[in-house]
Design a protein around this nucleic acid. Structure first.
Lengths: 353, 353
DNA sequence: CTGTTAGCGCCTTCAC
DNA sequence: GTGAAGGCGCTAACAG
């Protein structure tokens, strides 16, 4: 026999067995245009019998779409990014494409490595939450490789790629305003990882709000960005609250910080919101089940992933239809709104819990 | 100019520009054996200058590894599977491979579709948490396609592929025993999705434990597998607890059921564990932060993904080295142990909370 | 409607 | 140490 019978059958195998030319088989598997019903049936029968599947690699080599997009994120286990990934996967699927997920741990070096691998595989496009939004290396890389890319959650400042971001600044601004309106005078902003775009924006929003509140309400801003894990959170909470002029409200800039802070407060038996109020950026699964329930700034996570993917495929269809001339339309920059979800920890008493 | 300057440079481009043959360039990018230092340097310079990257599709076509493995799971957003995915991704990365994640929503039809797409892309191997562990279609598909596959979390009963599973039966058995030893007499098993392998195994464990407890402790088993969402959970909890002979303990068979049950109990102001104890299968992020903290059966989630991936790559290296003769070693079946994490909701009082 | 043919980019004998 | 040539599986001209 000619072929090892464990290697997948090829188009030629099908053609041979069906007694037709390769072109005909090719036509059959690509919609069956310009093929007589009779041959079509016969060929399809052979395909089914042999369990033939087109070799995507060969198609890619011929210059077709790889039907694959790459996603570069800090972590999959993080529910934020896994939700984005799921949304993107869904869009990819609807475009008959696969999603390759790579994780960077926020390490720019690993990120670049991942991008390289993805380029080798000739993915049609890239979805990326950059480790370092100010990196020129990344911007240059993305600019050089002519692969459509969309950043999400974080921008790529130096470059010109499309982005889908949450309005972190405004979300933090509004959250802080809310605390101020509750009458809290000494508001502590708690967090870490200040190199991240999202954190900086949130901090900026907090600062701006407090700047205003200083005038209007005589409120004072406290900032402690030393929180990295539970230990540092507990230390921070304890030291701030046992000081001479403790905060009466805490604004946590991210998910995990909120949780750490709450756990610390709980452990130290500090009453929330009586002694200190708590309001966090980013919702999380049991925020409404904890006692007190935690007020948060909620962002439209799935939308981030979904819209980023949609933008990417829009670009792909663009460059497919239109003449290779990339029609220099400036890249889209979508900014999504947050929603302030008021529960009990900020001092509100919505509904009847 | 010959080539459109926006299409990636090819090996031939490099060869031409460096004034050498393609063979030489090929050697350079594959380790640089049998190439003089001088040409090596020159070629590498050109490669860097052109930003050349080998086209993986061409390599695949030549019969090389795709350096890609496919993962087929019910959902990415689910923290259980995203953790598995992250672990698998890490192993893949360490083997210089990419991970393609596809999601099935536990729909066997979508699952098969995903598998087909993955086959087209000639992934080197498959990691799968089958939607239906009893499916003959799936088993047949996996058997026919000669791609190494490892199932995890759930087996593929009819086939002969390797698997990495949690010992759900024993985990549930021990958990139930624990409740019995607390002295609870009427224990309710609460859950849903009884078609899933994991659920069935847990239910089996519960039944077995209660069977024994009936004799030894005079305990009674109650079973309600009607829980699908929060509403059904609340309904179930309410009706059971308001009945004439309410349960004094609840064993929830999965993550989300545990949470729904807890939320229901909280809403109905039913004291835990005083009025009813609660013990759930599967740990979750804030289980120890809730009040009372929730006792759970913890499974080694990351290990599932990691070991499954390791097994897969072991198979890959196998078939690479050894003669194509697949050495008919029977597939490995790894079973991982659970851990009973005792917190407050079952009636225990570990540490000082 | 259908078949023949020429590559896509790479690796791999085989000569030099 | 180096190069030329063939072919992996597929599609897209071109013939017929």
């Amino acid at each position: 026999m000619k072929r090892a019978n464990d290697s997948p059958p090829t188009l030629a195998d099908v053609a041979h067995k069906a007694g037709v030319g390769t072109t005909t088989v090719s036509r059959v598997i690509n919609g069956g245009e310009r093929v007589s019903q009779k041959t079509l049936d016969r060929v399809q029968a052979v395909i089914a019998q042999l369990g033939y599947m087109p070799n995507q690699a060969a198609r890619i080599l011929k210059g077709e779409r790889a039907k694959t997009i790459g996603m570069v994120i800090p972590s999959i286990a993080d529910s934020f990014f896994s939700s984005c990934a799921e949304a993107a996967q869904e869009i990819a699927r609807s475009h008959d494409s696969l999603l390759i997920v790579t994780v960077t741990n926020n390490d720019p070096h690993i990120e670049l490595e991942n991008l390289n691998v993805l380029m080798r595989h000739r993915t049609d496009g890239l979805l990326i939450a950059p480790a370092n939004y100010q990196s020129e290396t990344l911007a240059a890389f993305l600019g050089r490789s002519h692969v459509p890319a969309v950043s999400f959650d974080r921008p790529v400042e130096k470059g010109t790629i499309a982005s889908v971001l949450t309005d972190n600044y405004r979300g933090a601004l509004e959250a802080t305003h809310h605390l101020v309106e509750h009458g809290y005078k000494r508001i502590l902003c708690l967090g870490g990882e200040t190199t991240l775009y999202t954190i900086r924006e949130r901090l900026r929003g907090f600062r701006e709000a407090m700047q205003q509140a200083k005038q209007t309400h005589g409120a004072t801003a406290l900032i402690d960005m030393s929180v990295k894990d539970y230990r540092s959170a507990e230390y921070a909470v304890q030291s701030h609250l046992s000081g001479p002029t403790p905060p009466d409200a805490i604004f946590t800039v991210k998910n995990s910080t909120t949780i750490f802070a709450f756990e610390s407060l709980q452990k130290l038996r500090i009453s929330v919101p009586k002694t200190v109020a708590l309001l966090g950026f980013d919702d999380f699964e049991l925020a409404s089940t904890l006692r007190p329930s935690i007020s948060v700034v909620q962002q439209p996570i799935e939308d981030l992933g979904r819209i980023a993917a949609e933008l990417l495929f829009a670009q792909l269809l663009m460059t497919e239809k239109g003449r290779p001339a990339p029609s220099r339309k400036r890249p889209e920059h979508v900014k999504l709104e947050t929603r302030l979800v008021l529960r009990n920890s900020c001092g509100c008493t919505p509904g009847t819990a």
